[in-house]
Design a protein around this nucleic acid. Structure first.
Lengths: 125, 125, 125, 125
DNA sequence: GTGGTCTAGACCACC
DNA sequence: GTGGTCTAGACCACT
């Protein structure tokens, strides 16, 4: 049985696995894709699905809790806590940041906006 | 005295410092901004400028040499070795990687290709 | 309907909930505030009042019974069993423990016995 | 060779070991007993001295860093960071809290201020 | 030699 | 079944 959430870790990425997880869940919560009361996958199930040690996933969950995004109760699983966040605004901010970063990279290669759009359309598939 | 090249390391980035350096020099060389015979900054000067230990910069230079991009001679500094790179192909590869990364980020936000293109066009200005 | 006894659990305290309960009842019994024949609150009522699972309160009661402080009879509730405790000695032991803990805390602050006494006198009011 | 600092963990205390360590260092820093630039004992040395696993001490150090009390540089040890804190006020606050807690405990035992002071004087030795 | 990350597995508290 | 803590040891990045 696999977890239903689209989280993944890239072991070739130098970013620590627990940090990759933390970010992805934080993003899902901040953008409203996970809302108050939703449950995160059980620690051990997610660890098994991703091929990680339990403690590694555990650290991600701990940090989410420390950030107040999640509430964890012994024996009761981990549920989204999140107070009132403006999901739309947050999503827009993330989108803008990503677009800007991409634009800068393309410009640094000496290419045009058209090149950027074309490459994006090819990459989308 | 500072090095003339625009290289920098971000210590908050989990990517190892030597790897950040290696990548930047490799990109400069592959895109023809550094050509055969050009000298890399002296190890110790660059280390001082960036606030790194000499060994850290040394490791970046070593790996560049191992990759054949650079040649280090005792007392002679480190000079760019490789002339034969297909700058166009390299640029295209970088473009593709950046586009793919951007597409993934937008998809993770639950947004569409149109959103991605629109944001890109706004970011371009 | 609430239990009449002033017992409480602090979930932010790392001490297990069942252990917090056990201690409080043990203290009430040892200091004579609960005497032979007195009834402890019904398990389920106390669990409800404190927001705990029934099993958690059950474990506290079990340990009290194992210690011989209490007797549980099916359908008959849980009643205080033990009469023969030296209340004075128990009280003295608790006092000693509290004083030692306080002395250690003050010493860890790098302060003197005089500081400890002064603060205590102010706190007493 | 043992660490010079008076930190200790009580394994009978239900408080997690890493949390006991975190608190003690935080107290030493907040009360000015460790000041900016002072070094914490090396992770592995402290772990050995206390009979703990390296990761356990590591977690305490991590949390101190997350709280901004300490700065840790790979290969460079862990040093006190602490911005401007009013050490005297902090110490006084801790003292007041400890004294109040002690006073409450003694009062709950039905004893007098004199009893509290006497016990304190005996405990101090 | 200094921290940081990860693993594999054990035991505990709680629902 | 759910998380939380701890161990023992490995490998990596950096000074």
């Amino acid at each position: 049985m696999s977890s239903q959430l689209s989280v993944a870790v890239d072991l070739t990425d130098p970013t620590p696995a627990y940090e990759q997880l933390r970010r992805q869940f934080a993003l899902l919560i901040e953008t409203g894709q996970l809302i108050r009361g939703d449950r995160l996958p059980p620690l051990r199930q997610l660890a098994r699905d991703l091929g990680l040690a339990v403690g590694t996933v555990g650290r991600a969950y701990q940090e989410l809790e420390a950030a107040g995004l999640v509430l964890t109760r012994r024996g009761g699983g981990t549920t989204v806590q999140v107070p009132a966040v403006d999901a739309v605004a947050t999503t827009r901010a993330h989108l803008r940041a990503a677009a800007t970063a991409y634009a800068k990279q393309v410009a640094a290669l000496g290419l045009s906006q058209d090149d950027a759009v074309n490459a994006l359309e090819k990459a989308w598939r």
